[in-house]
Amino acid sequence: MEQGTVKWFNAEKGSGFIERENGDDVFVHFSAIQGDGFKSLDEGQAVTFDVEEGQRGPQAANVQKA
Score class of each variant (00 low, 15 high):
Met1Lys: 15
Met1Ala: 13
Glu2Ala: 09
Glu2Arg: 07
Glu2Trp: 15
Gln3Tyr: 15
Gln3Phe: 15
Gln3Ala: 12
Gln3Asn: 12
Gln3Asp: 07
Gly4Tyr: 00
Gly4Pro: 00
Gly4Glu: 02
Gly4Cys: 07
Gly4Gln: 01
Gly4His: 01
Gly4Thr: 00
Gly4Val: 01
Gly4Met: 00
Gly4Leu: 00
Thr5Leu: 10
Thr5Glu: 04
Thr5Tyr: 14
Thr5Arg: 13
Thr5Pro: 00
Thr5Ala: 05
Thr5Asp: 02
Thr5Ile: 14
Val6Ile: 09
Val6Met: 01
Val6Gln: 01
Val6Trp: 00
Lys7Cys: 08
Lys7Phe: 02
Lys7Trp: 01
Trp8Asn: 06
Trp8Glu: 05
Trp8Gly: 04
Trp8Phe: 09
Trp8Pro: 05
Phe9Asn: 02
Phe9Met: 01
Asn10Gly: 03
Asn10Asp: 13
Asn10His: 07
Ala11Val: 12
Ala11Thr: 11
Ala11Met: 09
Ala11Ser: 11
Ala11Arg: 14
Glu12Phe: 12
Glu12Gly: 10
Glu12Pro: 04
Glu12Met: 13
Glu12His: 13
Glu12Arg: 13
Lys13Phe: 09
Lys13Gln: 10
Lys13Leu: 11
Lys13Trp: 10
Lys13Ala: 10
Gly14Asp: 01
Gly14Leu: 04
Gly14Thr: 03
Gly14Glu: 04
Gly14Ser: 02
Gly14Asn: 02
Gly14Phe: 01
Gly14Cys: 07
Ser15His: 15
Ser15Ile: 15
Ser15Gly: 07
Ser15Pro: 03
Ser15Trp: 15
Gly16His: 01
Gly16Trp: 04
Gly16Ile: 01
Gly16Leu: 01
Gly16Pro: 00
Gly16Ala: 03
Phe17Ile: 09
Phe17Ala: 04
Phe17Cys: 11
Phe17Ser: 03
Phe17Trp: 10
Phe17Asp: 03
Phe17His: 02
Phe17Gly: 01
Ile18Val: 02
Ile18His: 01
Ile18Met: 02
Glu19Ala: 14
Glu19His: 12
Glu19Lys: 15
Glu19Ile: 14
Arg20Ser: 06
Arg20Gly: 04
Arg20Gln: 07
Arg20Tyr: 07
Glu21Met: 11
Glu21Leu: 13
Glu21Trp: 11
Glu21Phe: 09
Glu21Thr: 12
Asn22Ala: 08
Asn22Thr: 10
Asn22Met: 09
Asn22Leu: 08
Asn22Phe: 12
Gly23Cys: 08
Gly23Phe: 06
Gly23His: 07
Gly23Glu: 06
Asp24Gly: 13
Asp24Pro: 15
Asp24Val: 13
Asp24Lys: 13
Asp24Ala: 13
Asp25Met: 15
Asp25Gly: 06
Asp25Leu: 15
Asp25Arg: 09
Val26Cys: 06
Val26His: 02
Val26Leu: 12
Phe27His: 05
Phe27Ser: 04
Phe27Ile: 02
Phe27Gln: 05
Val28Asp: 04
Val28Glu: 02
Val28His: 01
Val28Arg: 00
Val28Phe: 11
His29Ala: 01
His29Lys: 03
Phe30Pro: 02
Phe30Ala: 07
Phe30Lys: 05
Phe30Trp: 15
Phe30Leu: 05
Phe30Ser: 06
Ser31His: 07
Ser31Ile: 04
Ser31Trp: 06
Ala32His: 06
Ala32Ile: 00
Ala32Pro: 01
Ala32Met: 05
Ala32Glu: 05
Ile33Gly: 02
Ile33Tyr: 01
Ile33Glu: 03
Ile33Leu: 07
Ile33Arg: 00
Ile33Met: 03
Ile33Cys: 06
Gln34Ser: 10
Gln34Leu: 13
Gln34Cys: 13
Gly35Lys: 02
Gly35Cys: 10
Gly35Thr: 10
Gly35Gln: 10
Gly35Pro: 01
Gly35Tyr: 07
Gly35Leu: 08
Asp36Trp: 10
Asp36Gly: 12
Asp36Ser: 12
Asp36Met: 10
Gly37Arg: 00
Gly37Gln: 05
Gly37Leu: 06
Gly37Glu: 06
Phe38Trp: 14
Phe38Ser: 05
Phe38Asn: 07
Phe38Val: 08
Phe38Tyr: 11
Lys39Val: 08
Lys39Glu: 06
Lys39Ala: 06
Lys39Tyr: 05
Lys39Trp: 06
Lys39Arg: 12
Ser40Lys: 09
Ser40Arg: 08
Ser40Gly: 07
Ser40His: 09
Leu41Trp: 04
Leu41Val: 04
Leu41Asn: 01
Leu41Gly: 05
Leu41Ile: 05
Leu41Glu: 02
Leu41Met: 05
Leu41Tyr: 01
Asp42Arg: 15
Asp42Val: 15
Asp42Tyr: 15
Asp42Met: 15
Asp42Ile: 15
Glu43Ala: 15
Glu43Met: 14
Glu43Leu: 13
Glu43Val: 15
Glu43Tyr: 13
Glu43Asp: 10
Glu43Thr: 14
Gly44Phe: 03
Gly44His: 06
Gly44Gln: 03
Gly44Ile: 02
Gln45Asn: 07
Gln45Met: 11
Gln45Cys: 09
Gln45Trp: 10
Gln45His: 08
Gln45Phe: 05
Ala46His: 13
Ala46Arg: 14
Ala46Met: 13
Ala46Cys: 14
Ala46Val: 13
Val47Leu: 02
Val47Thr: 03
Val47Trp: 01
Val47Ser: 01
Val47Met: 01
Val47Tyr: 00
Thr48Asp: 04
Thr48Asn: 08
Thr48Ser: 09
Thr48Val: 10
Thr48Phe: 13
Phe49Leu: 04
Phe49Gly: 03
Phe49Lys: 00
Phe49Asn: 01
Phe49Tyr: 06
Phe49Cys: 05
Asp50Thr: 15
Asp50Leu: 13
Asp50Pro: 00
Asp50Ser: 13
Val51Met: 09
Val51Pro: 00
Glu52Met: 14
Glu52Trp: 11
Glu52Arg: 10
Glu52Asp: 07
Glu52Ser: 09
Glu52Thr: 12
Glu53Cys: 15
Glu53Tyr: 14
Glu53Val: 14
Gly54Arg: 07
Gly54Leu: 06
Gly54Phe: 05
Gly54Lys: 07
Gly54His: 09
Gln55Ile: 14
Gln55Asn: 12
Gln55Ser: 14
Gln55Ala: 14
Gln55His: 13
Gln55Gly: 11
Gln55Met: 12
Gln55Pro: 15
Arg56Trp: 15
Arg56Asp: 08
Arg56Cys: 15
Arg56His: 13
Arg56Tyr: 15
Arg56Ile: 07
Arg56Phe: 15
Arg56Leu: 10
Pro58Ser: 07
Pro58Cys: 09
Gln59Ala: 07
Gln59Thr: 09
Gln59Asn: 05
Gln59Leu: 07
Ala60Ser: 02
Ala60Cys: 03
Ala60Val: 02
Ala60Asn: 00
Ala61Glu: 07
Ala61Tyr: 11
Ala61Gly: 06
Ala61Leu: 10
Asn62Lys: 07
Asn62Trp: 05
Asn62Thr: 03
Val63Ile: 06
Val63His: 01
Val63Ala: 02
Val63Gln: 02
Val63Lys: 00
Val63Asn: 00
Gln64Ser: 10
Gln64Trp: 11
Gln64Ala: 09
Lys65Pro: 13
Lys65Ala: 12
Lys65Gln: 10
Ala66Gln: 13
Ala66Leu: 15
Ala66Ile: 15
Ala66Cys: 14
Ala66Lys: 12
Ala66Arg: 09
